[in-house]
Amino acid sequence: MSAGTSDVAISGAVPDVAPRRGGVLAGRGSALAAALIFAALAVLPPIASAIGDPFLVVTATRIVVFAIAALSLDLVLGYGAMVSFGHAAFVGLGAYAVAILSSHGIDDVLVQALAAIGACALFALVTGAISLRTKGVYFIMITLAFGQMAYFFMVSLSAYGGDDGLTLSARSTLFGLPVLAGDIPLFYASLAVLALAFLGLRALTLSRFGRVLRGTKENPVRMQAIGFRPFAFQLTAYVIAGALAGLAGVLLANQAEFVSPAYMSWQRSGELIVMVVLGGMGTLVGPIGGAIAFLLLEDWLALFSEHWKLGLGVLLVLLVLFTRGGIAGGVERLFGKARP
């Protein structure tokens, strides 16, 4: 077995995973697409200040934060074949970890991030273990219900703002230093988290663990017949994804300097799914592209009408109805990119 032949296998692995839903940014160009997206994001702050539009950085931070959340959902949805409809709950829990600790005078971002990851991992472990006892429509409904449970918990938690949410007195600090106080440092910190998440998930999906997860997505019975129990792998992926989404929540709380139960609503979970599918599930660069496209589309539609959600809804329905293989397939055909 030479090293050269191994390389064939590894480069072939990524596009082969999702033959049906490749997405706009799938395929062999994905590494290039990722490099371009990260480069473009990295040079955005100087450009924003050059053209005198500092708000651009704020928008970009929001995009990067949701890209992290979408990326984490993709591990569950695209690689694990679990249609989870409660993913926004993890983002919200992460955000609340910041707000609640901050209201008690704990402002250090490392402590907050650890708390967020711990809380989200625990919530994912418990709800995932119960949800994964079921399949199909059950799984979708149950994850949705658990997401709502977290939502209502925060709504009724009047000590921390309840329905109205909670405003942060200041952004998180690092060892007492207000390193995230400026919008540009926060943007770069978020971008760094996104880059680390991207590289980490890339390694993970190609690892032993990731290979079993991808195999389970394609054919769970075959995986059992060679001696793997899908449950343990799917649950682990669910927990990792939950923790990463919690990290996105930490950044979101800092970006908005405000948290509210609305972050956890099921519409948010639906939007995250749209981002992942729009960009291309089962690819890592896809959800990032999907988050960019979705949030820009949202801003753009909002320019025309307060009823922009109507436009989004019509777009979703039309894409599903008139494209074979869902949205990703349709967008693909729109761009005339044929797949083998």
Binding site: L77, V83, F85, G136, V137, I140, G270, I273, V274, V277, H307, K309, L310, L312, G313, V314, L315, L316, V317, L319, V320, L321, G326, I327
Partner: peptide
């Protein structure tokens, strides 16, 4: 598949609520 159904009916909610 279920995912397409989720997306289309999610879109329908947005349409009808608006």
């Amino acid at each position: 598949d279920h995912l397409d159904q989720v997306l289309a009916t999610f879109g329908l909610i947005l349409i009808l609520n608006e």
